[in-house]
Design a protein around this nucleic acid. Structure first.
Lengths: 238, 238
DNA sequence: ATAACAGCGTAAACAGGCTGTAAATTGATG
DNA sequence: CATCAATTTACAGCCTGTTTACGCTGTTAT
């Protein structure tokens, strides 16, 4: 039962502080941003469960932020609009928002919509699951990983990559797929070796003998696979 | 191991045929439509897993089709747009498409996006599909091959060729088709013997008597075929 | 404010083996 | 026997993944 992660975006620092305080009282983990770019940065670096987004932002339009996030993820988004303008509502919903709220609004109403969206997005049901592969354990909601019961501290990128491999354990994931999932805004160019480096750092932390990987197997010319086969065939290919 | 069902909508019959052929080679079950109404009819009568939708259609706009389907289900939709127009992109994503592709596009790119969408939509969890031909076993998602239960290590090209033959077991594939699938970028000379060499290496690894192939049969003047007929075993012909 | 540090992507060097080509050989066909 | 297609062998290039080091950025500590 760990806290849900909420990204709160509004240009008004006072409102930001008030809502953030209330959300934290309700047990949420809150990230805040006052600018659109800042919001996108946080969205890309933190695994948030829900976004509360003001329509009016200093730099980038809230709708633009909405579109960017929607391109690669289905995180529920609640739009905040300054006035009761129909065009704003329509615009907000069309751009991919799941719900909208007209300012000024009651916090209780926001709290209700948050719960509704979280329940609808299925974050609730994904609670309590622990993934195991051999002596590896991964707890998605806590973003924790343990090998042989010993917790290992991973960076965000490392965890994201490992989690992706975990979710597809036993299946080969090709490089392009992995890169598309881990770097949504195609911040990487095609021939980047960033993925390889991260995998190498992962192996250094997880594998007993990093030179003969037991878990993360490389499939030459294709990609990587997390081996969940008990028979432990060391070289399925090559 | 039931094939995924794809609805392909484009007004250009030639493009339709080409993409359909490629999709079927990849093991998909393809429905095609050239008009919007036709697409909606098929969508309502067939349980499709994914829709590939051209933006420009003779009767109804692709976006309209998109909206209609979206009101009934959450089938992933990949939009095809004629030119790299920003407004088209935005329009496509706003109307509820999950991804878009700008024509002309490489088939490999489309294939990658299809897999990504299917995986994201959760349909791709057909964990248990294992292909068998005689004593040969092929697990696509693990890229593993076993003969008589003994795992055999194949290189990427070898596996790709064998997988293609597997997916079309019992059917003759002519050289040009195989080469088009395995070497998409026209990287090979038309008179290259690379395919023959790879087939030879495959036989060396798979067949008990490589000189009398039991599995990979050559059809002189045409191409190759993976024999799935148990009755036709190495019989001294003539 | 400056320094130290962690996280991350890039660049370059390196090794190994995959892979296509060329050429010789066999086989099929008429 | 002539001819064309397919098989087989050998080999060099280069592609691919690994590894190390470095620079950049943002954050925390001094």
């Amino acid at each position: 039962m760990t806290a849900h992660r909420i990204l709160l975006v509004d240009d008004d620092e006072d409102i930001l502080a008030i809502i953030k305080g209330n959300l934290e009282l309700d047990g949420y983990l809150v990230f805040t941003a006052t600018h659109g770019k800042e919001a996108i940065r946080i969205f890309e670096s933190e695994a948030v469960d829900l976004i509360i987004l003001d329509l009016m932002l200093p730099d980038i339009d809230g709708i633009q932020v909405c579109r960017v996030t929607r391109t690669h993820s289905h995180v529920p988004i609640i739009m905040l609009t300054a006035k009761d303008s129909v065009s704003d509502k329509v615009l907000g919903l069309e751009s991919g928002a799941d719900d909208y709220l007209v300012k000024p609004f009651d916090y209780l109403e926001l709290a209700a919509r948050i719960k509704a969206q979280l329940r609808r997005s299925g974050v609730y049901v994904s609670q309590g699951d622990v993934l195991d592969v051999g002596t590896l354990t991964l707890i998605p909601e806590r973003r924790e990983v343990a090998v042989d019961g010993e917790p290992v501290s991973l960076t965000k990128k490392e965890f994201d990559i490992l989690a992706l491999l975990f979710k597809n354990a036993g299946k080969v994931l090709d490089r392009e797929t992995i890169k598309a999932e881990i770097w949504p805004g195609q911040k990487l160019y095609k021939w980047s070796r960033a993925l390889d480096v991260h995998v190498q750092r992962l192996r250094a932390k997880l594998e007993k003998n990093p030179e003969t990987p037991q878990y993360i197997q490389t499939i030459p010319g294709v990609g990587y696979m997390l081996n969940n086969d008990p028979s432990q065939i060391p070289s399925p290919e090559r």
